[in-house]
């Protein structure tokens, strides 16, 4: 692994920041140079959010551009399509099947696409669909859906289960350790 570019996309408030912190911790522990770029402020209010995680020997820019992501983790179905252009040829998308209507859909000004899977398949994209909310509920709380998704993504990023567990434990509060450990393991096992 000389360089790895990961994109985390979703809806403001879904917990993408924790996922990016765990990834950052994982790559740092692996001895790599890391840059994680988040956007705070207005877009966190239910808007479309994007986080870049880059790891390698010497990472300059914190951003990933179109066609540059090895793995995209999408926390929401429609957002997967919005950011599909960021995927490298041969890359993998981990897609949460949760759907959250954007405001133009809520107001009736737009329609939520009913063919996201077909569109991604038509683009030749390798996508892995995960019901992360269900897995998180199974682990103990729907709030751990972000960590379940990360578990699924870890299969395509590489590395040992132990190294990943260390990274998860380093980033979550002590009282949520068990929940997140379980959610991560479930996500990883089923992907």
């Amino acid at each position: 692994m000389t360089e790895l570019n990961l994109l985390i996309v979703g809806v403001g408030g879904q917990g993408t920041v924790l996922a990016s912190r765990i990834l950052g911790e994982y790559f740092t522990a692996a001895g790599l140079d890391v840059k994680v770029s988040e956007v705070h402020g207005m877009s966190q209010r239910g808007g479309s959010v994007i986080t870049f995680v880059r790891a390698g020997r010497d990472v300059a820019s914190p951003l990933i551009e179109a066609g540059g992501a090895d793995v995209i983790i999408s926390f929401e179905l429609l957002e997967a399509q919005r950011y599909a252009g960021y995927l490298k040829p041969g890359g993998t998308m981990i897609v949460n099947t949760q759907q959250i209507d954007p405001m133009p859909v809520v107001t009736g000004a737009a329609v939520y696409p009913d063919n996201v899977r077909e569109t991604l398949a038509g683009l030749g994209i390798h996508a892995v669909y995960v019901d992360a909310t269900a897995e998180a509920v199974e682990a103990g709380s729907a709030k751990a859906a972000n960590v379940a998704l990360l578990g699924a993504a870890s299969r395509f990023i590489g590395g040992s289960a132990e190294a990943w567990e260390q990274a998860v434990l380093a980033c979550v509060p002590a009282r949520f350790r068990e929940l997140n450990q379980k959610a991560f393991a479930l996500g990883r096992a089923r992907a």
């Binding site: 966190q44 551009e65 179109a66 066609g67 737009a110 329609v111 939520y112 569109t119």
Partner: peptide, 15 residues
């Protein structure tokens, strides 16, 4: 760089 054209989806402004 070559980029892939992806069909557009409804916008998601902050709310």
């Amino acid at each position: 760089a070559e980029t892939v054209a992806v069909p557009p989806v409804p916008g998601r402004p902050p709310v």
